[in-house]
Each structure stands twice: as structure tokens, then as C-alpha cells.
Amino acid sequence: MHVGLGLPITDPITLPDWARRAEAGPFTTLGLLDRLVYDNPEPLVTLAVLAGATTRIRLQTEVLLPPLRETALLAKQAATLDLLSSGRLVLGVGVGGREDDHVAAGTDLRTRGRRMDDQLAVMRRLWSGEPYGAGAGPIGPAPARDGGPEVLIGGFRPPALERVARWGDGFLNAAPVSWAGGLFDFVRTSWKEHGRDGSPRLVAQVCAALGPDPVIEEARAAMGAYYANSGQADYMLAGMRTTPASIREAIAQFADLGADEVMLYCWGRDPGQVDRLADLL
């Protein structure tokens, strides 16, 4: 079982420290969320900085919202980051659901699913070196990984889960253990029905905070603020793991379901959590 770290968003200046500590420990991946109308660092820019601060750890968007972005430019940005990080980019993507993000981006919330399907098809083509289309040729640079960076697709409903088999390399699960088994089974079945070889990579997310009470209180406040207008704040906060035993339990439960990696998503700013989480692993 691989274990990665989801990075906090409230103090971007500290993130290179988080990245270096994580790379010195047992962690395999650094993850960073995406919003537009929120006080968070832009993930591709930030992960590019963290790529320069590290040498081996994977760099994952968790999840990037392609419908808010122009497709050809996003394909070029992702390929560039994958190339300059020696193939370490993992592009986790999802449609998002915050109306204000789409207002600010000038995009249509109602068509975001269809838009992302079209975007994934175009990006796959471009990463393979094909021309953009009529009047426009290929868009470089070529990514380090043949066919483009690894793509994980997040979501909860059947249309989102089916995208894994159509466009992705794996599934990024943000649901609790009690839901995850059914989602994993759907993704595996869809993968076979679409004639895909091998198995989808399954990555789970667990919200965690480890340390003295002020660290946990700060993490809960940051997470509560992020989900404040979603109608899910209390539910999400109830799932935060705050003791070594409960974090180990969550990792073991996802391992039993067949997850390949668990991302411990941290909301508190204290980088000492990296070392404490490393110790419990």
C-alpha cells in the first residue's frame, strides 16, 4: 500500500517544506486541490514549484477542474510539468460543482460533464503528438510519459465513474470507506466492459490531522470553511481522522478494498504533521 499526502491550502509559502519532508519519508505522492473562487494556490503552478524542490515524489492534482480551463493550453501546461518533473505528474481531474467557479471562468455549469469528456479526448490526442485539428498542428512539448501524464478521474455518480474506463488510468475516490467498495466495483466492471487491459489504479482520500489540539482545531476550521457552502461540512468533518489508530485503520480498510494508494489529506498548516504521519506508518 502506497501512502501520499494531500497538502494544506491556507499557507502556500510552507509547501516546499512539506514537500521536502514528505520526500524524505515514506510518502509516494503530493496532492493539491483546485478551486477558482477560493483562497487556494493554483495547483499546476504550485506543483511546478514543488517539482523543483523534490526529485522522486509524484505530483498530483486532486482534483483539477478542466471545464474551467482552455483545453489546448491545459494540455500544454500538463505536458510541460510532466516533462520537467521527469514523468512525475498525476493529473487527477473532476467536473467540479461550485457555481461561482464557473461564473468567474465564464463557463457553463450545466454542460461541464460533456465539456470535460471533449477535453480529455483532445488532450489525449495532443499528448500523443497528433495535430490539434483543422488550421492548427501539434502542440508540444511531448510529455515524459508516453501518451501523457497518468490521469485519475474523481467522482461519485455513474457518468463520472464510467469516464475512468473511457479516458483515465485510474479512479480517485473521495468517498468514505462505507461507500468506496461499491464505487471500486463499478469502476472495475466498467473497465472490463470497455475492453481495457489490466486494472484501473485505485486511489483513496482520507482527511487527517495529527498533533496537539491546536493543530486539529485549525485543520477542522480550515476544512469547515472550505465546505461551508456545500451542505456537506458536518458530514465531511465527521470523517476526519485525528489519532494514529484511526488513521492506520482507514489505511487498512482501503487496503482491504484493493486500493493501490491512500492520500492522507491534511488541512492544518503545521508541517510537523508530515513527520508524525511518517512515524505512524
Rank of each mutant, 00 (worst) to 15 (best):
G106S: 08
I153T: 03
A51K: 05
R248M: 03
M223W: 02
D260M: 07
G211Q: 08
Q232C: 00
L5S: 06
G147S: 04
R69A: 08
R56S: 13
S178L: 00
K76V: 12
G92R: 09
I13M: 07
M240Y: 00
G168N: 04
G155V: 08
V262I: 11
L183N: 02
P131N: 10
L44W: 02
R157E: 03
A48W: 13
D256W: 01
P8G: 06
G25C: 13
V274I: 12
Y265Q: 13
E99S: 15
L59P: 01
R88C: 04
E99A: 15
S128H: 06
R58H: 10
A160G: 03
G211R: 09
L257M: 01
N173K: 00
R188V: 06
R88P: 01
P138Y: 15
V63L: 13
P212N: 05
L64Q: 10
V177P: 00
G154N: 09
P67L: 09
D118Q: 14
Y235N: 00
E249C: 02
L36W: 10
E218L: 12
I13A: 13
A104Q: 05
H2E: 14
P200V: 03
T29I: 05
D213Y: 00
G4N: 10
F27C: 11
D270N: 15
T10F: 01
L5Q: 05
N40H: 08
A255R: 15
R125M: 08
R69S: 09
L161P: 07
